[in-house]
Structure formats: structure tokens, C-alpha cells
Design a protein around this nucleic acid. Structure first.
Lengths: 338, 338
DNA sequence: GCCTGGCACTCTTCGCATGCGAGTGCCAGC
DNA sequence: GCTGGCACTCGCATGCGAAGAGTGCCAGGC
């Protein structure tokens, strides 16, 4: 177990390194923080911290920088979440309230997060599987062609074209629409499959094929892989990363383009509060020198999707966590209102 | 007017520089291209080309690199568009055909373009103003709350919440829906304002306020600024830009995040075919060292939106133009089918 | 037992001089 | 108008030495 002072030293190292981006030495530490001890003592503490794997030196005769393990300890034990100031909260709220639809909400959220944290922001669209159905609309475009439109309580809209095996009359369509909505409106998407299971049976034999086709298209849109979407922004902030560019930034941009990777990343964070994954804690190799701060957001008590930021492991954790948490809260409110 | 050989020299310089990313000297030129003259002669030609502003040297005693003006001449006079090979065409078609909806089409197009050109791809969603209305749907969510869903012939869907000044019955809603669709379905969006102008008059006095509110929301969604959306991808390719990173890549990423800038960029290209804007021809400062290759695409003869790529001025113009043109063509086909 | 000042040591960084090579411009000759 | 030759200019890599930052360790003091 580390002594209280050694923890203070670690905290000081993290704070200084985050601020200056440069390895921090014993002398600088004692000057900038009131540790009440001499550089020599701090050196001993640093040696101990290094033995434990919390800090490391890039090369002999340079200062120390925190390791992933060091940041982890810092986040878990040494720092809290820095709440947003009142003006910041107001600004967030104002900015989000101008949104006209869900796409706009998501787009604004991304911009906001990127600006607040000066890092890359990632916002997942409200998940279908965790939403409820507001309405299902069926439009006849041609005798054997139907457009299926799906609207969720979070304002998300999905549409699909359905090619019917046989012509489908307007009245049958109206019938299907009515029956479908009476069964699924207001219900959770996960319940839809069982709710519509026996629906074809209510129709004339000649229409059953079409009804089944429509239903299977409906179910397909709910399949996990297809239904997850997200938006990213603030990639320009990556240029503030480090001075040894190309090889730092490249893999990150590549990872960010792989939606699958990002979705997995956000999906892994299961806790109710803000989740922080530091450096090598991220499974994806390209993100080994980044940290991901994420949190769920939702209109009610339950999270319908995640949002977060991706930045260098050397980031202002308390501030970032505060910003992410605050934005998530306000996005939830906005969604609940719409 | 430049002699035929000098144009050949310019072409050779552009090709070599694009290939090697290094200033090209007179000796290397004569070795790699059969110009039939000696390096000394080429040097004279190069001096002439430099006087005319087509090429420049980064510093004395380095080879020459093309200027924006040089690339312009190359694109306009010295190079054609390199058509895609048959296998490439098939690959494009296959890849795009798997799309399930418009978002998916756009997303796939972005990926495809980025991969083919190894540059940053930008795809604009089909414009509302240049599309026709397929259907307008109105859903009653609460007594005084209506959801407006707008569907275009290109598969784009927009939705808006409308807070009504007074409760609006289900039958009135159905009435409005029917009247609205009979007037606007199949018509161009630009005609919608005049088509619905006198619609409130057909309703009872108590409903007119609501009808007007719904209509004004409908018209708002058509306003230019709100209705333009786009998707970008392949930003990881920016890392191949140059070796002098931070300052090259930063402004580009920033420009790419400004949708307004990008929309203006695409909007400026008016010609029917592929448009190329080179370096300083781009109004936006951050894009002064990039070229933008764009083209309109559409389901029919007319362009409903633009797509293109952003890359270093030192790019393979014929190849890029070929890829952009081919992708636009196939996206148009896909949209026409859906 | 813990803290402290002192000191030798290590390694990186920076400035500077040097040599090399690529590429040019110009000129005289064909 | 093309060509070979030649002197010249720079940028770039290399090597060396001094400077500086930071460490580890040790002996002494509270």
C-alpha cells in the first residue's frame, strides 16, 4: 500500500504532466506543489512509484510520466469528477435546445462535446432495441411495392423498401397498418417479434406472403448490426495529440472510421455512471495510447445509447468526465421532451 | 504559348512528382521519360515553365514541383479521365447494391470513394429542394402534438415535431393528410410553398391555426440551410499527406468539420461533369493546399446532390476523376432503383 | 526510521562545422 | 535550337562537444 504522500506525488505528477505535456522531474514537482518535502524525498517516492508500475521514465535522465496503471489509480482514487459551472450548463442547454430533429440533436451533441473537451466526440444514436415503437407507417408506392417507416419514441426514423411477392391492395395495406400499430405501438422493440408472430394468420391467404415479407423486413431492421449508428466529430483535435504525429494519429483515425470498433468500445462500458477506459485497457490496438470516457444517456431512467470522447491518455480526466456526464444529462432531457 | 515538348515536360513533372512525392530534376526526367532530348535542354524548358508560373522550386538546388497553375494546365489539357476497369466497376456496383436504405447508401458511398481514391471522401445527401415529394405523413402523438414525416423520391426521410396551437382531431388530421398528399405528392419540393398556400382555407376556422403551423413547419424543413446534410470519411488518409504534418493536416480537418464550408465547396462546382478545384482555387484558406474533385449525382438526368474527394494538390487527377465519376454514376443508378 | 543536501553519472538536446550530393544556370560549340 | 561541360548554390546528414535536466545513492541530521 502506498503512503498518503506518495499518492499525492502521483496526483501531482499526473496533473503536471497533463498540463505541460512534458515529463516531470522531482525539482519541478516540489516547486509547483506544496508537498512540504525536498526533491530528494520526492525522488525516493518516485522510485517507489516506478517500482509499483504507476510511473515510468521515457529514458534515463528524463522526468517521469504516468503509466496507464498510474492514470487508473488517479481516476479511481485520487480525482473526482469536476462538475460543470452554471454558465457552462446553461450554454449546453441552450445549444441543444435549438435542435430541430434527432439528427440535429446528435450532430449538435457531437459538436458540443468536441468543443467542451477539445477532443474527439462520439455519439451513438438511440438504440432501436432499447426504444419503444411510436408508430409504424406503410406506404404503397406501387402495386407490389411498399415503404416501411419505423418511428421510435426517441425520434429516430428508419425506412425500408419492401418488394412484395404479390400486389397488395390499399385496403389490405390499411388493415395491416392498423393491426400492426395496435399491436406494437408503445411497446419495446425487443418485444416486437413475438407480438407480430401470428399476424399473417389474420389475413386472406393471397395476402399472407406479402404480410410475411413486410414483417420480416421489419424484424430485419431490428437486428443489432444494422441498427446501430453513430456520429463522430472533433477529429481536428487529434492534431493536438503529441508532436510525434503520424504514427500516433493514424491508427486512431483508422479506428474511428471503423464503426464496429467504436460501437464495441462504447458497448463495453456497462456501469451506470461515467466509464473510463485507459490506454491498453482498450482492446483495439490503434487505441492503445488513447483513453475513452463514455456514459449512457436516455430519456428516462434507462440508457438508450452511449456517448463519449476519445482522447490521449494524457487528458484532463476530471474535466472530461464532468463534461461528458453533463452533456449526457441534457441530451436525455431533450430527448424526453421531443 | 508553350511548345509541345514543354507541355510534355510539364506532364512528366506532374506524373513523377505525384508518384514520388519528391521534387523532380532534369536528369531524372530524361531517364524516366523518353523525351528524346538531353537534361540540359529540359533544364531550359523548365526555366521557361518556371517563368510562366507552372512549376517552382522549393529552394535553389532542388528539383521542381508543379504549382497550382501547373496542375490546372495538366488537368485541363494534358490528362484525360482514367476510366475504371471492368472489375473495379463490378466491385463498385456490388458494394453499393447491398445497401438497405439511404443512410446506408451514403455511408457505403463514402467508404467506397475513400478506399478507391485513398483520400477523404465527401458525399452530400440528396437535396430536398431538387427532389420530389413521395409522401407526407402526419401522426398524432398527443391531442395537440403532431409528428410530420417527409419522404422524398430519393429515399430521404425528414421528420419534425409540431406543437399545435389547439387540439386537432384525428379526422381533421386524416383530412389534412389526404389533402396535403393529393396536392404535393410527386411534385417538386420547390413547388410545395405555392401548392399549399391556400390550404388552411379549406378547414374550419378552429383548425386553421394548427394547419398553418403544420404547413409552416413543413416549409421550414425545406429552407436551404437546414436541409443540407453530408457525410465524410477516409480522414485517416490525411495522414499520408506530407511529412510536415501538424500544420498541413490541422486546417484540413477543421475545414472538413465545418459542414458549411464543405457544402459551399461542393455547391460551387456547377459544371455537368467532374469539377476539379486546385489549391488556392478553393476559397477556404485551410484547403489551400488541397484539391477538391467533385461531381453531381442523381437518379435521373438531373443532379440531386454532389459527391467528391478532398486530397493533396499532389494527387493522381486522372485516376481520382475516374473514380469519382464512376461512383457517382452507380450511386445514381441505385437511387433510381429504390 | 525518515528526511535532506550533496555529488557523480547518464542521456538527451542543441549548436556548429564539415563534407557530400543533387540540381541548377550559363556558356561555348555543334 | 540542342548539347556537354563546368562552376556554383544549397540543403542534408554526420560528427563532436558543451549544456542542461534529472536521476540514484550516500552520509549525516532530526
Amino acid at each position: 500500500m502506498l503512503s498518503e504522500r506518495r499518492l499525492q506525488v502521483l496526483r501531482a505528477i499526473v496533473q503536471d504532466y497533463v498540463g505541460t505535456e512534458e515529463p516531470v522531474g522531482s525539482k519541478a514537482l516540489t516547486e509547483r506543489h506544496n508537498l512540504g518535502v525536498s526533491p530528494a524525498t520526492v525522488r525516493n517516492d518516485m522510485a517507489a512509484l516506478e517500482d509499483e508500475g504507476y510511473i515510468a521514465q521515457p529514458h534515463t535522465s528524463a522526468g517521469r510520466i504516468p503509466t496507464d496503471k498510474g492514470y487508473r489509480l488517479f481516476v479511481d482514487k485520487l480525482a473526482g469528477v469536476k462538475p460543470m459551472t452554471a454558465p457552462e450548463r446553461r450554454a449546453i442547454q441552450n445549444f441543444l435546445e435549438g435542435a430541430v430533429d434527432l439528427d440535429d440533436v446528435v450532430a449538435r451533441t457531437v459538436r458540443l462535446l468536441a468543443q467542451l473537451t477539445r477532443q474527439v466526440a462520439v455519439v451513438q444514436y438511440p438504440s432501436l432495441t432499447r426504444s419503444t415503437v411510436r408508430h409504424v407507417e406503410l406506404l404503397s408506392l406501387a402495386p407490389a411495392r411498399v415503404m416501411l417507416v419505423l418511428i421510435t419514441d426517441t425520434g429516430r426514423v428508419e425506412q425500408r423498401m419492401v418488394d412484395c411477392p404479390a400486389p397488395f391492395g390499399e385496403s389490405s395495406l390499411a388493415d395491416l397498418r392498423a393491426r400492426l400499430n395496435s399491436r406494437v405501438a408503445g411497446r419495446r422493440f425487443t418485444d416486437v417479434p413475438t407480438l407480430v408472430e401470428d399476424l399473417p394468420e389474420a389475413f386472406e391467404h393471397e395476402d399472407r406472403g406479402t404480410v410475411s415479407t413486410v414483417l420480416s423486413t421489419l424484424l430485419e431492421t431490428l437486428v443489432e448490426e444494422n441498427e446501430e449508428r453513430l456520429m463522430i466529430g472533433g477529429t481536428a483535435n487529434l492534431t493536438r495529440f503529441g508532436h510525434d504525429f503520424p504514427f500516433t494519429i493514424r491508427p486512431v483515425l483508422e479506428a474511428l472510421e471503423e464503426q464496429v470498433v467504436l460501437l464495441k468500445l462504447l458497448g463495453e462500458a456497462k456501469e451506470p455512471g461515467v466509464t473510463v477506459r485507459i490506454g491498453h485497457e482498450n482492446a483495439h490496438e490503434g487505441l492503445n495510447s488513447t483513453s475513452v470516457v463514455s456514459v449512457g444517456y436516455g430519456s428516462g431512467g434507462e440508457a438508450v445509447a452511449k456517448l463519449g470522447v476519445v482522447g490521449p491518455t494524457r487528458m484532463d480526466y476530471p474535466g472530461t468526465m464532468g463534461a461528458v456526464r453533463a452533456v449526457a444529462r441534457y441530451v436525455g432531457q431533450i430527448l424526453a421532451e421531443s
